[in-house]
Simulated scan of single mutants.
Amino acid sequence: MEQNKLREETLTVSAETDDLKRVFQDRKRTNILNAIEQKTISFLVKRVPDFITSNMLTFIGTLGSAIVLLGFILAHLYGTREYLLLGVVGLALNWLGDSLDGRVAYYRNIPRKWYGFSLDIIMDWVSTVLIGMGYLVYAKSYYELIAFIFVVLYGWAMIISQLRYKITDIYSIDSGIVGPTEIRIILAIILILETIFGGLFQYFAGAICITLFIINILDTRKLLKLGDIRDDMERKAKKNAA
C-alpha cells in the first residue's frame, strides 16, 4: 500500500513538471491518422460477428503477417514480383486484427487488460519477425542484413514503449505523428512500388532502418530523462514522507 501510494504521489508530482510534458505526450494517440483510424475502428467494432472472439482477431492479425511472409517467399521462388501484393493484403489483415482485438473485448464488456496486453505484445513481436523473415528471403546478397537490422530496431522501439509504460503508467505506441498504422501504410506503398518497378525495396528498407534508428535514439534519450525525473520525484516523495 505504501509503495502504491508513493508511486501515485510521484506520478502526480511528475505530471505537473514541464520536463515531463515536454518529454512525452498525454495518454491520447499522437499518430497523424488517429482521427480517421478511431472512426474506422468505432464503425467496425460494432459489426464484428459475435462468433469472432478477441483471440480470433489476434490470430487474424498474426495471420496477416504470415501472408506478408508468404508473398515474399512466392515472389522469390517464382521470380514474379506480383506476389508481393499479397503483402498488402496481409498488412491490411494485420491492422484489422491488431486494432480490433482489444476494442471488441471492451465493447462487449469482457476485457482482460493484462492478458490482452501480454498477448498483444508477444504477437506484435511475432509479426515483426515474420515480416523481417520475409524480406530476408526476398533480399539479395548483403541486403539480407537489412532484414535483421529492421527486426532489431523495431524490437528496440517495442522495449522503449514498455519501459515508458513502466515509468509513467502511460502506454504509447506512437513516436510523434508516426505509429504502427502509418508504418503499415508505408510498407504497403513500398510493396506496390517494388511490384511495379522492382529493385527499389532495399533502398526503402534501408531508409526505414535509418529512420527507426534516429527515432529510437531520440526516444531513448527522452526515456532516460524521464527516468531521471521519476527518480528525483521518488527521492523527494520519500524525504517528505520521512
Score class of each variant (00 low, 15 high):
Gln3Phe: 11
Thr10Asp: 05
Leu11Val: 06
Glu16Ala: 11
Asp19Met: 14
Leu20Gly: 04
Arg22Val: 06
Val23Cys: 06
Arg27Leu: 05
Asn31Trp: 08
Leu33Val: 14
Asn34Pro: 01
Ile36Trp: 15
Glu37Val: 06
Gln38Tyr: 05
Lys39Asn: 14
Ser42Asp: 15
Phe43Cys: 07
Leu44Ala: 09
Val45Arg: 14
Ile52Gly: 09
Leu57Asp: 00
Leu63Ser: 10
Ala66Pro: 11
Ala66Lys: 10
Ile67Met: 09
Val68Arg: 00
Leu70Met: 13
Leu74Ile: 07
Leu77Arg: 14
Gly79Leu: 01
Arg81Tyr: 07
Tyr83Thr: 07
Tyr83Val: 05
Leu86Glu: 05
Gly87Val: 03
Leu91Pro: 04
Ala92Asp: 01
Leu96Gly: 04
Gly102Ile: 00
Arg103Gly: 08
Ala105Ser: 09
Arg108Leu: 06
Lys113Val: 04
Lys113Arg: 08
Trp114Leu: 08
Tyr115Ile: 00
Gly116Asn: 10
Gly116Met: 07
Ser118Arg: 09
Ser118Pro: 00
Asp120Cys: 03
Ile121Ala: 08
Ile122Arg: 02
Met133Ser: 12
Tyr135Lys: 12
Glu144Trp: 01
Glu144Ile: 04
Leu145Gly: 03
Leu145Pro: 01
Ile146Lys: 02
Ile149Phe: 00
Met158Thr: 10
Gln162Ala: 02
Lys166Arg: 11
Tyr171Trp: 09
Tyr171Gln: 10
Asp174Ser: 08
Arg184Phe: 06
Leu193Ala: 14
Thr195Phe: 15
Ile196Pro: 10
Phe197Glu: 01
Gly198Ala: 11
Leu200Gly: 06
Gln202Gly: 08
Tyr203Ser: 03
Tyr203Val: 01
Phe204Glu: 08
Gly206Ala: 05
Ile208Asp: 05
Ile210Lys: 09
Leu212Ser: 08
Ile214Gly: 07
Asn216Cys: 11
Leu218Met: 09
Thr220Trp: 01
Arg230Phe: 03
Met233Ser: 15
Glu234Asp: 09
Glu234Ser: 12
Lys238Pro: 00
Lys238Ser: 02
Lys239Met: 10
Ala241Phe: 12
